[in-house]
Write a protein that binds this DNA or RNA. Structure first.
Lengths: 129, 129, 129, 129
DNA sequence: GTGGTCTAGACCACC
DNA sequence: GTGGTCTAGACCACG
């Protein structure tokens, strides 16, 4: 699948899965009606504990992004697209907000901050990584 | 003192103290040779358990920012300023980098991302918070 | 495990654990990739409070000797062996140095000191303790 | 006076004073009947808190090394010499013993330990430091 | 007054 | 099950 898990970046693994699945839906990489890989398969692909994947899927269900289809596993709900678009906006905004809040209260001056952001923005958008 | 603790933002309280003390040194709000508030005083101010503050101070010692003055408390080391300046840059850069990485791989388009950043930047720098 | 804790010899308990784990790695009793007993298990064995053991393990992590395996406990890092060998040499040398410095400035004569050392060396290496 | 205080070597300052005064008596640098500097004077010389010196003197009194002389401060007792000779032997022996115990259980081999001791012994006895 | 250590017991996220 | 964090309260050595 299209998930990049980083086991040591502070964000819980299950939460990384949740966020990235939502993002995949938001950008159209997974569509309503599509099935997601089974817990076992996903766990094998990412070499994670199945419990971790199961937990992520559970959260995605309670968030209304996935729904069980009898005997067929989980598929993306019909209103997931709208939902995930909004969610994406919120998640990204929050994270940027928190980062900037800390930057600002750390005493970095406006120009330096601006410069730092441009730098990172460039480095991020250049390499596809 | 000038610390803003948020007990429920994902970052451990002791770590918030560590980061903010480093920032305070970096921006010159505390200077080498200055003493920091005692464990008990800080704990009272922030209504935290003294152990939590002690743990933060211990980390700051092992990071070379504070040093004990026997029986007199803890003071900022002479090379803390250089150290904290560099540390601040690193901490902030990392956090912004991680946020932008996620934003980019979430599929938000360049313009929308740019706009979102400007928005947050404005909202953060406006209010004196 | 093979730790001998002496709760009243001046060295903090958590530090005794730190030192002895490093020594165990240095002499090959624990190898890179091995897992150390869990916090709770070690605490039970030594009849200590789990927090005390946790503190020691935390120090060992920040010293680069142990690393967490998510949900699976702590294991010895790959470069711990080199590290601990050097560390052991340093810790032991320092302690002997300090003892001899004091002995020398206490006015004990060279021969008497030599004799005293031999005596202790014999008594220590004899009993399997 | 003839004391070398190291505020950061793990041994409490007051205890360093106690030990070194005993050593000075043992090697004849101070004799029974001699007066020791007043608390204030000693504190000034060593730039220590007078309380610290007072505490050391108190311990030395309860150990029978010093005794008050009406209005004249403290002087070395008549049986201090014998007492301190024995004490010195015990203190030094204990410290060496503890160091060797740790060295031995750290897994350093007999030859390496022997070598390390000789090394330190040489470095200590060479420079008068 | 200061920091350092330890115990006890709780809750959390994660596997 | 694992480690991580926090609270609460105690005792100690030191200045």
């Amino acid at each position: 699948m299209f998930l990049h898990i980083n086991p040591s970046n502070g964000i819980a693994i299950y939460d990384q899965i949740v966020r990235q699945v939502k993002f995949a839906v938001a950008r159209g990489a997974i569509r309503p009606g599509n099935r997601v890989p089974s817990v076992r398969e996903m766990a094998r692909e990412l070499t994670l504990n199945p419990n971790t994947v199961a937990r992520a899927y559970q959260k995605l269900q309670s968030d209304g992004v996935l729904e069980p289809v009898r005997g067929m596993g989980l598929e993306v709900t019909s209103d997931a697209l709208t939902h995930c678009r909004a969610e994406r906006q919120k998640l990204i905004r929050e994270r940027i907000h928190d980062a900037l809040i800390e930057a600002q209260q750390s005493g970095i001056e406006g120009d330096a901050l601006r410069q730092l952001i441009d730098q990172q923005l460039a480095s991020v958008t250049e390499d596809g990584r």
